[in-house]
């Protein structure tokens, strides 16, 4: 069973209205996730990674969603709310970035967990719900769960709150778990614990995980496969080792070399020139990364960049990767003069 596709996104396009026009924040992406697999979506703010996750959950407020989102073979894009509500929190659930704001401040933690049981396990008695809720707190590693159960979110630390959110997310044993920057707001030791927890739960439940993050260290630790997003598109997708050892797309390579790495040298970090274009000003024609590597000749780019399969399962967009090199000193200075 583990080979069947749990989630298959085909040509997803999510657009938001600004003024009179729609602008695609997610522009024609295709992805798939299997059971017991962690797919990481990586990119900087504005890359469309969170918009993709929100599209899967259909949580966007006012967005136009086109394309297919197949969940266990069934298209759930633009499902009517009543049907979508049966899936959310049940077969697909989500872990959020900021555990401080993602919990209702006026509701006891226990009641927030119970809510997801009330919604999807209507045959449970209130006693069973409480017992199961406490059991869930145990599962996510919360000490003295009986006490925490009746406490309010503001009485708990950030790490504890994130565990509550995870308990809510796994209450109905979802097949697909979407984690949107689950550790960004947490301290590094807590981050390690939360990542361990997500990994364990994934193994126990045999769920697929979509992990959205901008932290390449987290990706290296967690992901089986990685999709790198830039300006609403996937620019590279590969299994995690390939991506870190043999990254091809200029953006992936630039990102990797801009992280202060663990070896901690005094070398200068690589800086990607220019800025991430805003949604309204995304380049829609040609290679979207072109402006960020101005020292490369225009001829290296494709006119209509496609994803090319360079080895099984390793896709790279545009042909510019074949010629890409980091800028020489003089090229860099020249480019800076332009901006």
């Amino acid at each position: 069973m583990s080979d069947t596709l749990l989630l298959e996104i085909k040509n997803l396009k999510t657009s938001f209205r600004i003024g009179e026009e729609y602008y695609a924040a997610v522009d024609n992406i295709s992805l798939d996730v299997r059971h017991n697999e962690v797919l990481a979506l990586v990119g900087e703010s504005g890359s469309g990674k969170s918009a993709t996750a929100f599209s899967i959950m259909n949580l966007h407020n006012r967005a136009k969603i086109e394309g297919q989102i197949l969940f266990n073979g069934r298209d759930i894009a633009n499902l009517p709310p009543s049907k979508m509500n049966k899936l959310r929190g049940n077969e697909i659930s989500m872990i959020f970035q900021d555990p401080l704001t993602a919990l209702n401040p006026l509701m006891e933690c226990g009641r927030q967990i119970e809510e997801v049981l009330i919604l999807h396990k209507s045959n449970m008695s209130s006693k069973q719900r409480k017992a199961y809720g406490i059991d869930l707190l145990n599962q996510v590693g919360i000490p003295r769960p009986e006490r925490i159960y009746d406490q309010f979110p503001h009485e708990l630390s950030g790490g504890m709150r994130q565990r509550i959110i995870i308990a809510i997310a796994i209450a109905n044993k979802p097949e697909l778990l979407i984690a949107d920057e689950p550790t960004t707001a947490l301290d590094v030791t807590i981050q390690a614990q939360i990542l361990d927890l997500i990994r364990e739960l994934k193994n126990d439940l045999n769920s697929g995980v979509v992990l959205i993050t901008h932290d390449l260290g987290v990706v290296a630790e967690m992901a089986d496969r990685v999709a790198v997003m830039y300006a609403g598109q996937i620019v590279e997708i590969a299994d995690v080792e390939t991506l870190f050892i043999q990254p091809l797309h200029p953006y992936t390579r630039s990102l990797l070399s801009s992280v202060p790495n663990a070896e901690g040298t005094d070398d200068k970090l690589h800086v990607i020139q220019g800025i991430v274009p805003s949604l309204k000003h995304l380049p829609r024609e040609g290679c979207r990364f072109k402006d960020r590597i101005p020292w490369m000749d225009d001829s290296v780019h494709e006119e209509h960049p496609e994803l090319h399969e360079v080895s099984p399962g390793h896709f790279v967009r545009c042909t510019c990767y074949q010629h890409f090199h980091f800028p020489e000193q003089n090229e860099e200075e020249q480019a800076h003069g332009i901006t």
Binding site: M57, L59, P81, S82, M84, N85, K86, L87, R88, G89, N90, S93, M94, F96, D98, T101, A102, L103, N104, P105, E115, V116, L119, H120, I165, I168
Partner: peptide, 21 residues
């Protein structure tokens, strides 16, 4: 607020989101 998104992500129908949260 973020916790409203959490409520929706739980699968709470709109009416419940309004009433409870």
């Amino acid at each position: 607020k973020d916790f409203i998104i959490t409520a929706r992500a739980k699968g709470a129908p709109e009416q419940r989101v309004y009433n409870r949260h």
